[in-house]
Nucleic acid binder design. Sequence first.
DNA 1: GGAAAACTTGCCAGCTTGGAAAGATTCCTA
DNA 2: TAGGAATCTTTCCAAGCTGGCAAGTTTTCC
Lengths: 205, 205
Amino acid sequence: MDSDLGLRERKKLATRAALSHAAWSLMVEHGLDAVTPEAIAEAADVSPRTFRNYFASREEAILDELVRRASSVTESVRARPESEPVWDSLAHVLPTVVAGLVSERRDIVVLMHAIKCDPAMQAQHLVTYERGHQLLVEAIAERTGTDAQRDLAPRLLAAAVAVVLRTSIEMWAEGSTDTALPDLIQEALAQLRAGLPLGNSAPTG
Amino acid sequence: MDSDLGLRERKKLATRAALSHAAWSLMVEHGLDAVTPEAIAEAADVSPRTFRNYFASREEAILDELVRRASSVTESVRARPESEPVWDSLAHVLPTVVAGLVSERRDIVVLMHAIKCDPAMQAQHLVTYERGHQLLVEAIAERTGTDAQRDLAPRLLAAAVAVVLRTSIEMWAEGSTDTALPDLIQEALAQLRAGLPLGNSAPTG
DNA sequence: GGAAAACTTGCCAGCTTGGAAAGATTCCTA
DNA sequence: TAGGAATCTTTCCAAGCTGGCAAGTTTTCC
């Protein structure tokens, strides 16, 4: 993995991981108010000044974990055979990836609440989200031989996938369903594939 | 319009408008660096402290103009006859609304550059964008009798519209096409309506 | 082994943020 | 229309945040 990196690089990665993990844990266990640079630094056993060398804000530290997960999605997509239709790749990857969330529903709920209530968290979340989204657009464009900048297709597919993910996770998190998360995702994807209930109502009314 | 408001309310709206207009003009004419609370306040003829009573940041002030335009989109959609399919409402409203942009392409380009280069601008832009997006989802859900929280349909349609808008405006702004913006939008909408190039490639390959 | 490079840390100056209270303006009622 | 209540603007300023700097450590590389 990173054993081909020098000691210094490994330490940096470890410090960064320790910091974001500390930030995340503090939020989950003691609430957002408990997440101060000082507290994070102490939990990660570095100085507050070092914390600022790694993250510009506590929000960035908290959400850094999500960044890693988001990039694992696109990595998984790229890892699928090139001959496979993107759609199939996505249908295969998404339920698998989210499976990792099932054990931490409580944590996700806390996170979503924080994002909803705290403007800085919301802003940082959107930044994180946007970055992941962009990666997905590019992965799709690459696979389909389209242009991530100009073509509608890859952007639309990525946006649709994002909606599916977001909606499923929200419903699952708020506990308004008994269905397991991966199944929810699969259902939503099936619904999407069956025929988008988009604008095809044109002549009908 | 707002003549049914008292003098005080009208003055507040005017001050707010003056501040965001000043912020916008400063950015367009002198660059983002020139947009300081002090400069904005001076241009709007109020104290710097008053600026902070209206906006939490210069970015918020700059983008306040966009907020107004975004809400005009959903208002226009709501103003269409209820019997009209949403899709038709959107196809009618969007090209009309963006027509107002044609005379300010330079300004939009400057804005997009600022958003691309400045992290704080990007974050605030995403917040603004998200709010507008949510309004659109709700307007669509209302019209189609669906649930903005639970159903995929209104979210997907809103997301698709957002992609269309964003892609069209980006292409138009960067000058990689000669087509007029409203026409670009119409073409993109037509492309979307004709058949989403989404995941329907499933059995094919 | 030791110099060079990179990282951590404490210090601190400058900026940002927002509370408090005085002054100015608008509102409301008699 | 006078005048008290309510609200908005402004000045002042304290507390907190931010990021540069240089000294002290650790890692790298020859």
